[in-house]
Simulated assay, not measured.
Amino acid sequence: MRVHHLLLLPAILRSAVLAYTPLSESTIQGLPSPGKDFDIKDGALLSPILIPRVPGTPGSEQVLQHFVDFFSDTLPDWKLSFQNSSSTTPVSNGKEVPFRNLIATRDPPWVEREGEVGRLVLVAHYDSKLTPKDFIGATDSAAPCAMLMHAARSIDNALTQKWDDMAGDALDELEDQKGIQIILLDGEEAFSSWTDTDSIYGARALAEEWENTYHPPLSTFSTPLASMDLFVLLDLLGSPPQRVPSYYKTSHWAYLNMADLESRLRKMGSFKSSPNHKSKRFSNEPRKKEPMFLYEADKKDTDRWTGGYIGDDHVPFIARGVEVLHIIPSPFPDVWHHPDDDGEHLDPDIVEDWALLTVTFAAEWMDLEGYLDDGKKDRRSAEVLKDELNGEMT
């Protein structure tokens, strides 16, 4: 079956075909921690984003350069590209404001042309609101951007290991043509008040351009939009409350995958924000009920699905048929669009927990069990054992 036929299948069938091996507990425990990289004062990933970054301002350019430097210096195998646009805004007095989207892509090395790879797409916006003055937007969405940077770095070596091991093998048409893409969008925030034309400037421009950008004839995927197996949008993460419903019935299968991961991580004691984490209770205390981020794993088809009620960067993509998993709390965090949405009001444990959940979701999607740090140790041990056995037989 060709992938472009797969995209026409119901979501439940697509999720069954896009199979992967769940991460083992030992693999999860061996995943890299962000360490001090999320420190709000001098963390290498997060702190450079915690500045005002209104589109078209020096702060925006500075943060964009931070992303470019990170990928160029740390993850050189990721292909960087930009999608640029400009638009007037209600407050620009007729002047065009520039919007620059950054796209970082990692595809299997044997892929020779565009249009042959389906991708997991992880998305956040990096701009901040014009008002209130000097607004930072730590949850909205500096912290989600840092989470995506950490996720890319955490799985990069494993992708290399997996694809190196696969070189020369017979490739499965569906499972082995998977790539990953991170999109950092500009211009999500309204300059005056949210309308269809004063919001999501970068997302609207990118979706329109990619809808009309065609891959070579006979490609598996006709456009960059068709290449998106799942569009995962992170927004307003890092400060309470953090309860994320399942917004869309068509992507509930992906929500269930992430919710299952969260449940496993909580049972393992890996979530630092959990009241049951070892740092928050004595060993002889009874366990408390876990406050799940993704709390609608038992949602039924007949329940209320509220995907159309929240305007965000996913809107122009889902309108064009892209499958979307929207990770945004409802209700919004208490600091939403308030001057207190700054680094000091982030909950470091919540930020780390969302980062871990994002890493594990991406790693499972890319089927990296056995290729992360713990897995590499296992493979080396197996190779040593094989050599020893061969030596005994000669």
Rank of each mutant, 00 (worst) to 15 (best):
70 F>W: 04
282 F>A: 14
192 S>I: 04
105 T>R: 00
393 M>W: 11
147 M>F: 10
5 H>W: 14
45 L>G: 00
378 D>P: 07
240 P>S: 08
260 D>Y: 14
208 E>F: 07
69 D>P: 05
165 D>V: 00
356 L>I: 02
386 K>P: 10
192 S>Y: 09
72 S>K: 13
200 I>L: 11
116 E>I: 00
333 P>R: 07
361 F>A: 10
313 D>A: 12
62 Q>Y: 12
15 S>K: 15
326 H>C: 01
333 P>L: 08
120 L>V: 08
139 T>E: 06
177 Q>G: 10
160 T>V: 10
138 A>C: 05
198 D>Y: 04
335 V>H: 03
185 L>I: 15
134 D>A: 09
303 D>R: 07
83 Q>V: 13
202 G>N: 02
336 W>V: 11
192 S>M: 10
392 E>Y: 15
303 D>A: 08
237 L>Q: 07
213 T>S: 11
92 S>M: 05
193 S>Y: 11
273 S>I: 09
226 A>I: 06
189 E>M: 02
78 W>G: 01
259 A>H: 02
384 V>M: 14
300 K>F: 05
88 T>P: 08
370 G>A: 06
146 A>E: 02
91 V>R: 13
46 L>H: 01
231 F>M: 14
106 R>G: 06
129 K>F: 05
253 W>S: 15
131 T>G: 10
59 G>K: 03
253 W>I: 15
170 A>Q: 14
349 D>M: 07
6 L>I: 04
118 G>W: 01
255 Y>N: 05
288 K>V: 06
347 D>N: 14
350 I>T: 12
348 P>Q: 07
